[in-house]
Amino acid sequence: MKRGIARYSYINDHRASLDGKTIATARGEGCFLTTLYRALKIDYPRFFKMDNLSKLGFLASELILEGDERRYSRGEEVAIICFNRGSSLESDTRYQATIQEQEDYFPSPSLFVYTLPNIVAAEIAIRNKIHGETAFYLQEHFDARALFERVSEAFEDAGTRAVLAAWIESFDAREAFMTRVEEYDGEPPLFPFSGDTIVKLLNKSRNG
């Protein structure tokens, strides 16, 4: 079975795009992720409980899965494989602040539960009822070859038919790049799945 990229989305701190087309840009003050959430007219109050890493991944998946009629019914068929550099260090730092001073020591449970990077995969799984493999890998820099290898290997699981593959960074930068990789017969959905294609699509997305 061949594999192709069906859709790809990109979000940074001021712009969001789907399949290379700009969907929203930051205007004025306020957090762009909240602006984007409102622009997409999503009704999911849990969004406001998420940390930035989860918000980024969640919105990137909303862009990719919008309008997909099988969105909520694929169960074990879909795997979510994520990568980044900074792990959950943004939330780690915020949680650490709640325990830093002995006179002001109030460890926060709702911050602590976001001190694991794979929580973003859980947020996407919960929203879309995805029961497939979820995994988070850490690397110094975006590495298309490693992404290609880990995602290809996720298809070794006999249940996997599609992978949401993403680079999601919220500590050293704010950026999410997600692709939906699908198995197919015949013509590729949009692009063939390869490390080179991933690099091209990311660069195109980054340059707007």
Binding site: P45, R46, F106, P107, S108, P109, S110, V113
Partner: peptide, 17 residues
């Protein structure tokens, strides 16, 4: 409000803090 067990733990922190 759609609150869960983590929210309950956070309210315990609020009471103390």
């Amino acid at each position: 409000l759609g609150l869960d067990s983590i929210d309950a733990l956070e309210l315990i922190v609020l009471m103390e803090k």
